[in-house]
Design a binder for these strands. Structure first.
Lengths: 112, 112
DNA sequence: TTGACATTTGCCTATATAGGCATATGATCC
DNA sequence: GGATCATATGCCTATATAGGCAAATGTCAA
């Protein structure tokens, strides 16, 4: 088997740093492709391909405007990622010591 | 260029569903490799390879115990993911907000 | 219709898997 | 040392990129 497609879900789509950068650029502001390319110092075809992935996963939408295409953000698809990682929040919000005692306590309970 | 390595960072590491499952299994409870393999209905070499990726990214640690190797979770590396996605929270909490006002509006209209 | 501009798509290469199977490496006990 | 159990690694195949460049598609204006 090979790696899952980048368009499989948000988890895979945002694994690419450039795609995360694009999403950040679109925060609260729609942008035209060439605009994004400029802001990223990347050539336009490359950006178009990343936008395609993001579009397929539903993280962005397109709004044709004359010969330009304005892209906008629909970050709702990021909620599963945020939610899933949130389930581990205790691992960084608590001190390492508390984490240790927590793990050990659970371990003791398991061993019983 | 090819896709970044799965060991490049947490973003790439958790793109794989099986690896997420492993992390979930290790929540608050250390486990031995064969234990994980059983719980996942997966053969042992495959699990070992996923564990290697997670180890390289630092999301899990190993604690040799006789001929077994006990794996534990260190989910601190997930914070960047949680934090980054958190920056988009308004995109889904806002939807809920809007849904609420929508519902209330409908209710008001129906009350009339 | 033709031309100019904006964006997408096709083609190509180098690089990486994920997982199955066989095998090597480690650790423990006799 | 030799047998045995637990894990890790090597090899192999099918499948996907990410990005560079060239070319196709789309859109508007004169």
């Amino acid at each position: 088997m090979a790696r899952a497609r980048t368009t499989a879900d948000a988890f895979n789509a945002i694994a690419e740093p450039h795609r995360r950068e694009i999403l950040t650029l679109l925060k609260g502001r729609e942008r035209v492709v060439s605009d994004i390319a400029d802001a990223m110092g990347m050539n336009q075809p490359a950006v178009s391909k990343h936008l395609r992935v993001l579009r397929e996963v539903g993280l962005v939408y397109v709004h044709p405007e004359g010969k330009q295409r304005r892209y906008g953000l629909d970050a709702r698809g990021l909620e599963p990622v945020h939610g899933w990682t949130g389930g581990f929040e205790e691992y960084w919000s608590e001190s390492l010591e508390r984490l240790n005692t927590y793990v050990k306590k659970r371990q003791r309970e398991e061993d019983r």
